[in-house]
């Protein structure tokens, strides 16, 4: 149980350390939080990228189609 208590203590200290950094260095918080914004920018970019991809594909097809018709 001694070993186990040490493990639990170590986990608590590690997490407590992160918490302390959070509390003592408020200027770091934006860095901690930055990744959560990035996923939203991806979500915004994605539909645009896909739309352009689809449109690109359609235009390629129509070009090929017109070539075939011709």
């Amino acid at each position: 149980m001694v070993v186990f208590n040490l493990i639990v203590l170590a986990i608590t200290l590690l997490m407590g350390g992160f918490l302390l950094v959070w509390i003592c260095f408020p200027r770091l918080r934006p860095w901690f939080e930055a990744p959560k914004y990035r996923i939203l920018t991806w979500e915004q970019r994605y539909p645009e990228a896909v739309r352009s991809a689809v449109e690109g594909k359609r235009s390629t097809r129509s070009t090929r189609g017109s070539e075939t018709s011709a």
């Binding site: 970019r45 994605y46 990228a49 991809a53």
Partner: peptide, 19 residues
Amino acid sequence: STVGETSQPVSQAASPVVW
């Protein structure tokens, strides 16, 4: 295929997320 039925990543300028 990748999104948009293209075989290559598209719209690099927009984002690589379309892979």
